[in-house]
């Protein structure tokens, strides 16, 4: 099981100031998990968060029309989310 240094869980839409804070705090070896309205970032993601593996909750993404997102994000279900949190040494819930 690969280890994640810090898993950043973000549920804010891209305009929320905390999104920028989150992007600034991401370091190499970290992972980013987008939930709820944060999945809207999938449309602009290729320019951001270059250092981290990016995941998004599938149901949230599909609901907003990002089912075939074509981005580098991996869509995950809730059991996979739990696995991610277990792989991470640190967790930040933005």
């Amino acid at each position: 099981m690969t280890s994640i240094h810090t898993l950043h869980i973000l549920n804010k839409a891209p305009e929320h100031p905390r999104t920028a804070e989150c992007m600034n705090a991401i370091r190499s070896g970290d992972a980013l998990l987008l939930t709820e309205n944060a999945v809207l970032a999938l449309s602009i993601l290729d320019d951001q968060a270059p250092m981290a593996q990016v995941y998004a909750i599938a149901s949230d993404a599909i609901a907003r029309g990002f089912g075939q997102s074509g981005t580098k994000a991996t869509l995950v279900d809730y059991p996979a989310m739990v696995k991610l949190t277990a792989q991470a040494q640190h967790l930040i819930s933005w």
């Binding site: 240094h5 810090t6 705090a25 370091r27 040494q89 640190h90 967790l91 930040i92 819930s93 933005w94």
Partner: peptide
């Protein structure tokens, strides 16, 4: 500081 803590919650 956030990276130093096990859990950070906003």
């Amino acid at each position: 500081l956030m990276h130093q803590h096990t859990h950070t919650a906003f």
